[in-house]
């Protein structure tokens, strides 16, 4: 069975959806440990992420491989695996007011959930006060603001300023993503910026690690 499992990792790594899912179903029907099966799929996805980070694979590869992993998760752990993980979130995430772009946000959230982060997705066109409200309600250590139009800068700035005012300079770490760069980050007053979905997810995981709030690599196994 070890060979079968390594085939699962290989199929995910090679982004072969049909093959990966048939192997998973066969393994589960044969009585394999669902966590071991999931672990193999995760190994495959880790290879994809590594190649993505090295520039050998691209966003489309990452999106599709993450999608295969999510389907393996549902098969191995049941529908609950797809929960929104919004209780005590690590991250409150939304596209800022006046902007309805959500592709980058959704991909980043998928990557974050893969790393084991609990993410509360507030959706798109989220007013500054809503971010502040949910940051307060949940006590999330990170707030991520996404925006793809330049009008989003103002909404990001307002949101960050409201958060800083409420927490008097303390409070959650703020990260902006989308059509952003160093000068936008400076203008908005956010703590960090990220253009790349996976790097944004990794940044969140490392911030949580630094603060001893999270053990990302073991989170999935703990479940």
């Amino acid at each position: 069975m070890a060979r079968l499992q390594s085939l699962i990792a290989k199929a995910v790594e090679q982004i072969e959806e049909e093959k990966a899912l048939s192997l998973v179903e066969f393994s589960l029907r044969s009585g394999e440990d669902p966590l071991a099966v999931l672990g193999e799929a995760k190994r495959g996805l880790e290879e994809v992420i590594a190649k993505y980070n090295q520039g050998e694979l691209f966003l489309a590869d990452l999106v599709v491989a993450a999608d295969i992993f999510r389907q393996v998760q549902v098969r191995a752990l049941g529908a609950d695996a797809e929960d929104e993980r919004c209780e005590n979130p690590h991250v409150v995430f939304g596209t800022v007011q006046s902007d309805i772009h959500d592709i980058g946000k959704n991909i980043t959230i998928a990557a974050m959930r893969y790393y084991g982060l609990r993410v509360l997705d507030l959706g798109v066109d989220v007013p500054p006060r809503t971010f502040v409200e949910y940051a307060g309600k949940t006590g999330a250590p990170i707030v991520c603001l996404s925006g793809l139009i330049s009008d989003a800068y103002e909404a990001m700035r307002k949101t960050v300023s409201l958060l800083k005012r409420k927490y008097r300079g303390g409070g959650p770490v703020t990260i902006i993503g989308g059509l952003v760069n160093e000068s936008v980050c400076e203008y908005v007053g956010a703590d960090f910026w990220a253009k790349d979905c996976n790097k944004g997810a990794e940044l969140c995981a490392s911030i949580l690690h630094e603060r001893n709030l999270f053990s990302a690599r073991t989170a999935r196994k703990d479940k």
Binding site: I15, E17, E18, L59, A60, V63, V64, D67, I103
Partner: peptide, 12 residues
Amino acid sequence: RSMHQFLRDLYR
């Protein structure tokens, strides 16, 4: 198709 579905189409 929306970007997510379309990218999946390229593989499937």
